[in-house]
């Protein structure tokens, strides 16, 4: 049975698209047929992070409007097999996404894919509501920072009242916390909310902690999802998160300050 997973946050710039790209790639690497859908209509960016921006011909809205079929719009990832991207359109029409249209496309994707990752836009407007409406699972991407945590709590409220599962009185959307841009060093000095703090406030299970990492910018510069970079902490942390998402038990890494050895102190890491 296909699973619809929304990557959401409320606040912008916390790493939704980075996480969507990494998690979708991670699932595909594990052999699951996966599609990642960009819901940020008008501000398409997932294609850039996935490195397929020059291969976009048709998009999500074209498919909804019947101007193209799914196979024409889906972009097959060149690096990872089992992985496809459905890009957002650049239209400025805010009403391009309708519940009926999105539902129809997701139903069609369900026939073919094991995982459908919905990359939500920021905010609580139509795009964000459409991205979360059909979800079975929500990955609430949060930075250890006050405005991000507050917005995540708002989104949790939406998931509990405005999603299809809530409206139809089905089993609630499974909510998971993904803490990104985490800096154990700053947590140790009391400058940053800890994993435990954010878990306590939002009160949802933890999917993973992604450390603040230079690898993320490098990855987006080159259009290669950061999970491919298995040398980096962020890449490894995303792999752990994907493993947990598929039911494996993996211990949290990169949550405590790394004790620097003598040589590392001198030469840096």
């Amino acid at each position: 049975m296909a699973q619809i997973i929304v990557v959401t946050s409320g606040k912008g710039g916390v790493g939704k698209t980075t996480s969507s790209a990494a998690i979708a790639t991670g699932l595909a690497l594990k052999g699951h047929k996966t599609v990642v859908v960009d819901f940020d209509i008008g501000l398409r960016n997932l294609d850039l992070i996935m490195g397929c921006e020059r291969r976009v011909v048709y998009d999500f809205v074209n498919v909804i409007n019947g101007e193209a079929n799914l196979n024409q719009a889906l972009i097959k990832d060149k690096r990872t097999s089992n992985l496809f991207v459905l890009p957002a359109s650049q239209t400025r029409d805010k009403d391009a996404l309708t519940k009926e249209g999105v539902g129809r496309v997701l139903d069609e994707l369900k026939q073919d894919f094991e995982y459908i990752i919905c990359d939500s836009p920021a905010g609580i407007e139509t795009g964000a509501m459409m991205a979360l409406y059909f979800a079975d699972t929500a990955i609430v991407t949060t930075n250890p920072e006050v405005s991000s945590v507050r917005d995540s709590d708002r989104i949790l409220g939406m998931l509990q009242s405005k999603s299809k599962r809530a409206e139809e009185g089905l089993e609630p959307v499974k909510e998971l916390l993904l803490l990104t841009r985490y800096s154990p060093t700053r947590v140790a000095t009391g400058e940053m909310l800890s994993v435990a703090d954010v878990e306590e406030i939002l009160a949802i299970p933890l999917l993973g902690v992604i450390p603040e990492s230079q690898a993320v910018l490098k990855a987006s510069n080159s259009g290669i999802p950061v999970i491919i970079d298995q040398e980096s902490d962020a890449g490894k942390a995303y792999s752990d998160a994907v493993a947990r998402l598929t039911g494996e038990e993996v211990e949290m890494r990169f949550v405590t300050e790394e004790k620097k050895g003598f040589l590392k102190r001198i030469f840096g890491s």
């Binding site: 920072e145 006050v146 945590v149 507050r150 709590d153 708002r154 409220g157 947590v187 009391g190 400058e191 940053m192 909310l193 800890s194 703090d197 306590e200 406030i201 939002l202």
Partner: peptide, 16 residues
């Protein structure tokens, strides 16, 4: 400041 952040969040989130 992290302690302050947590306290402020607990209040606003409870209100929300």
């Amino acid at each position: 400041t992290a302690v302050t952040a947590k306290e402020r969040l607990q209040i606003i989130v409870a209100h929300q």
